[in-house]
Design a protein around this nucleic acid. Structure first.
Length: 346
DNA sequence: ACGAATGATTCCGT
DNA sequence: ACGGAATCATTCGT
């Protein structure tokens, strides 16, 4: 702290030489005193400015007032104006261009798509729940979960909006606060409108980055909600007995090559009243589980083998095909096993 | 309540 | 794009 005054002195010395504006003010501001006294004055003032932040509020207020009333104040103000003008130019050059944030756009789009940030529909969670309850009379199975999902979504939506509003409010409050501060300070130091604008934009950037975090976490919450409710695993139902019989029949009668073609899958799907991909899932699961523990499936395999054998016998004796979707390939009940097993009939 | 069964998803290799 | 393998989440049987 000891070198501060000296530093300022030397600086003002240079300033005196280089700033016609200052010397002009000095001359008209100070009637008869000599140059050394003026230097001392400016040194004092600058030191007071530098240390003003260390002081208590009352003390600072008093000193501020004293500075405002000081006879050297207009001169100093002018010097600061000139310095400012030069530095502001350099700052303006370094002004970074605001990039159109792709990440933010993605988040916004997603929130809009999920109906979180879009226009309010249904008007709150209570109304949404009521509407869901009203519509959920007949299809209790599906719409009960759907309403649950929507209720949770509107909860997220509500939190999102209140938080967003809070941020907005805080941003505005902070901005006006800073503006007031700057206005107040503009009495003692020069502040250009450009500077205020810049300050405001900095504040807005900061707050929008906070908003981005909110949006991000909201997106995360929605994704989790989606994965919880829209995941088919959550509402899994076992196939009915008939469907599993049909599938098993096909599987064990094609044990040598249990890979149904696309057409066979479609046919099975139709017979079982399930989708083709469900058929694919079933065969995928069956293959891997059969292979993993052939012994466990032995009984089942024998049973279906016997059944197809009976069917074949019936078919040959009656001259008509059974209603099982078995194809000619290895339909005789003696499949060459692609998975080794000591298969025996009964 | 518990473990087995089961349908669906995910990851990975081809 | 498909199948194998592992895994998840639910349902079923006890």
């Amino acid at each position: 702290m000891d070198d501060q005054p000296r530093l300022m002195h030397s600086h003002t010395g240079v300033g005196m030489a280089g700033h016609p504006g200052l010397s002009q003010h000095m001359q008209e501001g100070t009637g008869g005193t000599d140059g050394d006294g003026r230097k001392q004055d400016i040194g004092d003032i600058l030191q007071q400015i530098m240390t003003i932040t260390d002081q208590s509020l009352d003390e600072a207020q008093a000193r501020k007032h004293a500075l405002n009333c000081h006879r050297m104040k207009p001169a100093l103000f002018n010097v600061l104006c000139e310095i400012k003008e030069k530095t502001v130019l350099s700052i303006r050059g370094a002004q970074e261009e605001e990039p159109p944030d792709a990440q933010l756009m993605r988040l916004d789009n997603m929130l809009l798509a999920e109906g979180v940030s879009g226009p309010e529909k249904g008007g709150g969670s209570a109304a949404a729940a009521a509407a869901a309850a009203a519509s959920g009379g007949a299809g209790a199975d599906n719409s009960a979960e759907h309403s649950d999902y929507r209720a949770k979504l509107s909860q997220i939506r509500q939190i999102y909006h209140t938080e967003l509003e809070k941020y907005e409010q805080a941003c505005n409050e902070f901005t006006t606060h800073v503006m007031n501060l700057l206005r107040e300070q503009s009495r003692t130091r020069p502040i250009s409108p450009k500077e205020i604008e810049r300050m405001v934009s900095i504040i807005h950037r900061k707050f929008s980055s906070i908003q981005m975090q909110l949006k991000q976490s909201t997106c995360e919450a929605v994704m989790i909600l989606r994965s919880r409710f829209l995941d088919a695993r959550r509402k899994r139902r076992n196939f009915n007995k008939q469907a599993t019989e049909i599938l098993n029949e096909y599987f064990y009668s094609h044990l040598s090559n249990p890979y149904p073609s696309e057409e066979a899958k479609e046919e099975l799907a139709k017979k079982c009243a399930i989708t083709v991909s469900q058929v694919s899932n079933w065969f995928g699961n069956k293959r891997i589980r059969y292979k993993k523990n052939i012994g466990k499936f032995q009984e089942e395999a024998n049973m279906y083998a016997a059944r197809t054998a009976v069917n074949a016998a019936n078919a040959s004796s009656h001259g008509s095909q059974a209603n099982s979707p078995s194809t000619p390939n290895s339909a005789g009940g003696y499949p060459s096993p692609c998975y080794q097993s000591d298969r025996r009939i009964q």
